[in-house]
């Protein structure tokens, strides 16, 4: 039971992490390996505003959302579009965008290390709470609640707004989307920006209950990748299931075997998925 509840709560935040990357990879077709740094940047903002100005992280979420949106939009327009233009084929674009986003990731880590080289620790809503006999910290529960709300908003936006429909159309088939008059370039930029924004918001939430430092971004990137690939690229429901599975497995390994092995367990799932179901748990074989 403990494992179920803690795993579910962890999974909730993983959903958000993965949604950001899913939008970026599924729509804009850019494997953004600097996604984890976006999360850490969000966390740093949450930490920093709380420490210097006692601004509640729950408010910070909304403060940084527009900034993250604008920043990611610019990154896409200025740094990634030239690569898309230059690339002769998907393979070349993949290699270039991997190298470029690795570069961005290191640059961001470098900047954050020089801003704040230590752990981002603060205590916010840390009071214990008991649900169904399991004790959890209030901040985890709040973060989970916010994750659900953000996820729902995103879901509604994707399914019930014009812009969201366009995003989904591009994710399914950019060529046909272009034929029906969708500006694929614009929509990709939008999806990339929204993806980055969601990641940063998730980062703020995570900072309330996990202690981070400037260099852990790569771990989040890997986890987001695990979820996106396991759930199927562009598949939101798949991502939710995958996120919950990952949350549960990590919690189970940490409580039943050894916390030192959580990361190894996550990678093991990942490798198994890549080997046996690279098209995702619910994906059809690629055609």
């Amino acid at each position: 039971m403990d494992i179920l509840i803690s795993g579910l709560l962890l999974g909730g935040t993983y959903v958000l992490i993965a949604m950001g990357l899913n939008l970026q990879y599924g729509v804009a077709r850019i494997m953004n390996l600097a996604n984890g740094e976006m999360i850490v940047l969000g966390a740093l903002a949450g930490f920093w505003l709380y420490m210097t100005a006692t601004i509640s992280p729950l408010l910070t979420i909304f403060l940084i959302a527009p900034i993250a949106f604008a920043g990611n939009w610019l990154v896409y327009r200025l740094l990634l579009v030239p690569l898309v233009r230059r690339a002769g084929n998907q393979g070349q674009l993949e290699v270039d965008s991997i190298l470029a986003t690795f570069g961005m990731s290191f640059v961001l880590v470098g900047i954050m290390v020089s801003l704040h080289g230590e752990y981002f620790t603060y205590s916010f809503l840390a009071s214990p709470l008991s649900i169904l006999g399991t004790t959890v910290a209030l901040n985890r529960l709040v973060a989970f609640g916010f994750a659900v709300v953000i996820g729902l908003i995103l879901y509604l936006w994707l399914n019930h707004s014009r812009a969201g429909m366009a995003v989904r159309a591009v994710s399914v088939d950019p060529a046909s989307a272009r034929l029906v008059g969708i500006d694929v370039g614009k929509v990709s930029a939008l999806a990339f920006a929204v993806g980055g924004m969601v990641s940063a918001m998730a980062g703020v939430l995570i900072s309330t209950f996990i202690t981070l430092d400037a260099s852990v971004g790569v771990i989040f990137t890997m986890k987001a990748l695990i979820i996106v690939i396991m759930g199927g690229v562009g598949d939101i429901r798949g991502a939710i299931v995958a996120a919950v599975i990952l949350g549960m497995v990590e919690t189970a390994v940490a409580t039943l075997i050894d916390p030192g092995l959580t990361l190894a367990a996550a990678y093991l799932i990942f490798l198994l998925v890549l080997l046996f179901k690279p098209q995702g748990l619910f994906g059809r074989a690629p055609v």
């Binding site: 740094l79 270039d96 190298l99 570069g103 961005m104 290191f106 640059v107 880590v109 900047i111 020089s114």
Partner: peptide, 13 residues
């Protein structure tokens, strides 16, 4: 780390 990142970007661009 910053330098490593800049080196990656320099190569790509």
């Amino acid at each position: 780390t910053l330098f490593l990142g800049l080196a990656f970007l320099t190569i790509v661009y």
